[in-house]
Design a protein around this nucleic acid. Sequence first.
DNA 1: ATGACGATTATGTATATACATATTGAAACG
DNA 2: CGTTTCAATATGTATATACATAATCGTCAT
Lengths: 246, 246
Amino acid sequence: MSTVETADADSGGSLHQRILSDISEKILSGAWAPGHRIPFEHELTTEYNCSRMTVNKALSQLAKAGLIERRRRSGSFVRRPQSQAAVLELHDIRIEVEALGLLYRYERLEQLKRRSNAEDRALLGLSAAGSVLWIEGLHFAGERPFALEQRLINLSAVPEAGNEEFLEIAAGPWLIGRVPWSEAEHRIRAMAADEAIADALDIDPGAPCLVVERRTWSAEHPVTHVRFIYPAESHTLVARFTPSQG
Amino acid sequence: MSTVETADADSGGSLHQRILSDISEKILSGAWAPGHRIPFEHELTTEYNCSRMTVNKALSQLAKAGLIERRRRSGSFVRRPQSQAAVLELHDIRIEVEALGLLYRYERLEQLKRRSNAEDRALLGLSAAGSVLWIEGLHFAGERPFALEQRLINLSAVPEAGNEEFLEIAAGPWLIGRVPWSEAEHRIRAMAADEAIADALDIDPGAPCLVVERRTWSAEHPVTHVRFIYPAESHTLVARFTPSQG
DNA sequence: ATGACGATTATGTATATACATATTGAAACG
DNA sequence: CGTTTCAATATGTATATACATAATCGTCAT
């Protein structure tokens, strides 16, 4: 009953990688249904003629990826799909526009330094008052407005931003590189354009827009809140979901 | 210069877990900037007084998570943030509605078995003709329509679906559990409600809607294409982005 | 029957060791 | 001076081994 040996689909070269992909193939194809018990480590050990540590490495990764569930004394089992989580790629708008083969341009509409009011603090998630920077700008694709950006920057977290004039480059790309690593929360919804938005985006008032709001933290400190408003025709978000395999 | 020993923030108990969280804390806080060289494995070995395998396990995981980059002979380095990828949680609509404290109800509007036409094949990504199931249904939150669902099921992949009447349970929950594991692609956009949609959702024609389209494959076979149409007020998608930590 | 208890078992973590591999830096050479 | 060669080095992978831990099963006493 010795399997493999000749390798089905060598995916990475190392043994534990092959064990991993062999098993995930069985699960993803449905050959091993949810609830099915995966061979014990010592069985795989003889099947692949390797040590338990090698098998363990593969199974641990499968468990972390959420494909299997491991229970002491009982064995490892195929989990049933549950968390419908998808990976949403959020590109820089410049990239997005240039991918369409159009000329990108950014234009600042308004910029204002002020002491944070209650609404600012709510948006940023701040408890104490402090100064913030408010920026409104337009992203163009060719001649057409592509997206309206409304941004609030917490100057306590990024004081250098107070000295910048975001005239022709948006604050987003500027912030990346300055802020080390970040956590972010996105909210996506549809909205009807009000007068001001319709005017800026050159669309009809009441026309549907896609709104993407992002709140960003770095090391627990709120950094920025930004709202992108896209005319419905100009943008589609794409998210992919694949069970495992980093 | 011996650090830790007493443990800063025990996050999981095991040593390699602590090493991992110690280092990721340094990176995420910005203490170790992008490009910074992380101590060599043998240095961490003496710092934590453990074997190289233990250190290696932690660093390998950090590398897989994308926080660091490892180069032979040179060492490991903090990567700069790049791929703005966020995890989008897509819950079952029933869950979504019940989380709002409202009564959930599903009502089928239309169901039709037919031979796939060109549009069906484009939506599902099928090359050959075959029979498909078309279903339209409404999800209610209390008395109000919450979302309109338009679904196409590839009966070659899920023949049993042809015998079902999706009268009071939506096809989504039914498909999960029947289809082993899946890959999915989502498209999210805004749209103005046309007459038919406005009528079904009891909103004004032209009102903004959020549209989520999902294509699903299982073991390379197209399974279903579904379009959820939400009135703008009824739904906000939330996506979170955190650099690492499984 | 039922409950307590200990043996068994599979996984979880860690160790010391070994060799492979890629890359760097320096020495040797033309 | 430029090139080749080689040794040093850090990571990558695998092994055999050890003990910890949790869950299950059978046994035994109540």
